[in-house]
Design a protein around this nucleic acid. Structure first.
Lengths: 336, 336
DNA sequence: CTGAAAGCGCTTACAG
DNA sequence: CTGAAAGCGCTTACAG
């Protein structure tokens, strides 16, 4: 069962391969008669295009690459899902890749996507922009950053206003009378991790809250680090009266610890989570969160990369990020 | 900035393209001297392989395709993640695609994967095996089904023993004295949806439970259908005393309804969920579940497809599926 | 160990 | 509208 190629279709249809190609790709002008014959022959033989051949000749493929940092993270799953659906609507298939929060794996998949000559790449990057990422940017494939950015890289991005969301969150806690706010920060190898931590420090200082460095622990955007971070904060000689976790997975971890210890959110401890993911709703614990919009990020990123592909100028977009107050934050109880 | 090709590397290194290719792909024998020169030239120029060219020539790519039914479903995200990591360890990059529980989209991506000439395809299929799927099976690309199967298709698969898990679940409820068990079943276009529903009916009949057809509602493996299904069951003139939802997303939906209505699980209503996904742990509501192992499914599927690629015989695997009893199931309260 | 050459499957100016 | 031919970037027998 040798795989059949356009030459076979042309032979059966009694036309040249050129004509067969023109019919099959639907581009140039063809006579109704050849259209009929070629279409019929292709159907009879079960012809299926070899994309390698086409792309090699055309110099690019009708695919875009989407590289997220962690496909099991519901926030990124949402971005990926929306990007993919949106791209599909515009005639581009998506190659979805998972960096698994590893720079080495990010580089590997970036290499893969480039070597597949995808028309464009959407990536939630990590690291310092060295390695494959840097060299990729010197190639002529459009790249768009989503959610995260790389310092100094001249790449259009769609991100959230981390600073504003965090400022609101800390401001809210300050208003409620909290002085010691514990922060489970994200990895400093990511722009979101850094920006949110900087914003925390600024807001803490601005409101004159306790700037004890012990109140800040750095996690890695994974559930387990949220657990460890929250536990460490609670075990402090002088524990915080409020907690802020800087992504959804770490928020999950933190909440688990509270549940295990029987600590009621909003009473003994105020808690603010990050990313208003669907799973929070299920918890029905009325979690106050810093919310932004992964679905919109995904769609906008696709729009940008498609614009870039056709050579249009694109500029970065910063989406809103805001506090949604629910029941998990409450006035501070006097701890001293 | 024209993209540089192997010819440029060869020129700079002062060797033929053949030698350059041999060095770069690391296959055939080459002299240390040419290795040095070519490697250096490639580095200097920032050469990056064009996978289109290579695959076209070799007839296949070092990639496998993984097509899941819904990337936002944590169960499939887990399968996808493990498959991808496992494949990477064996030197294969993964092209992850999302059918979004749509047969049309499944076909589209199947087409894409085949046209990319991936070395093998892992798919959680849906539908009757018509369309692209059928024609794909006549091609010579190895296909492995994961989680789901297609009736009559001669394709190796790694699945869970749905029948056993469901039998245990219903048996457990029968033992607790439940007579009216409500079932939120999965879509009948999927093998898992069908198998689980059949198993429910069998077990209900075997234990002499109430076989009222109103007690069975069919959903689509999405949260919203779990909500609707559970609501419909609870609104029955004679509502069930126990509920079984046949996948994790529908379980989420059902739980939401219970929470909204203030129904305590395990007291007023016994509940059994499906898939022991991580998110359940967070709920800390002690959900009794039918559990199976998506991570293992993903790894095993990769092993099978790689075996098939090198021409080894592979046979289907059925993994265990079992009931984990927690607090959400309790003896039936007399409702009459 | 190496070079010259053919060819993987496709598309697209170029003539006609 | 159509055919013949070149060429996309790579690998691999084939000689040497």
């Amino acid at each position: 069962m040798t795989t059949i190629k356009i030459r076979d279709v042309a032979a059966l249809a009694g036309v040249s391969v050129g004509t067969a190609s023109r019919v099959l790709s639907g581009h140039s002008s063809t006579s109704p008669e050849s259209r009929r014959k070629v279409t019929e022959a292709a159907a009879t033989l079960g012809y299926r295009l070899n994309a390698q051949g086409r792309s090699l000749r055309k110099g690019y493929a009708d695919t875009i690459g989407v590289l997220v940092s962690d496909i099991r993270n519901p926030f990124f799953a949402e971005i990926a899902h929306n990007a993919e659906q949106c791209a599909l609507g515009k005639g581009f298939a998506t190659l979805l890749c998972n960096a698994n929060e590893s720079i080495a794996q990010q580089d590997l998949y970036l290499d893969l996507l480039y070597s597949q000559r995808v028309a464009g790449i959407i990536v939630a990057p990590q690291g310092d922009g060295g390695g494959t990422l840097r060299s990729l940017l010197t190639q002529d494939v459009p790249v768009v950053f989503v959610d995260r950015t790389i310092d100094g890289a001249d790449v259009p991005s769609v991100t959230s206003d981390n600073q504003a969301g965090i400022a609101e969150a800390i401001g809210h806690l300050a208003e409620l009378g909290h002085r010691r706010v514990g922060v489970v920060a994200g990895p400093q190898a990511t722009s979101t991790g850094r920006e949110r931590l900087v914003a925390c420090r600024e807001a803490i200082s601005k409101h004159g809250l306790d700037a004890d460095p012990e109140l800040i622990v750095v996690g890695d955007f994974q559930v387990e680090s949220g657990r460890r971070g929250a536990a460490a904060l609670l075990d402090l000689p002088k524990p915080p009266t409020a907690l802020l976790a800087c992504d959804s997975l770490m928020t999950f971890g933190a909440i688990e610890v509270l549940r295990e210890r029987g600590i009621k959110m909003g009473r003994a401890l105020s808690v603010i989570g990050y990313d208003d993911v669907e799973a929070y709703r299920l918890l029905r614990l009325g979690l106050t969160v810093v919310a932004h919009d992964p679905a919109q990020m995904g769609s906008l990123a696709v729009g940008m990369v498609l614009d870039a592909i056709v050579g249009r100028e694109v500029s970065s977009i910063v989406l809103e990020s805001k506090l949604i107050v629910r029941g998990s934050t409450a006035p501070a109880m006097d701890s001293g």
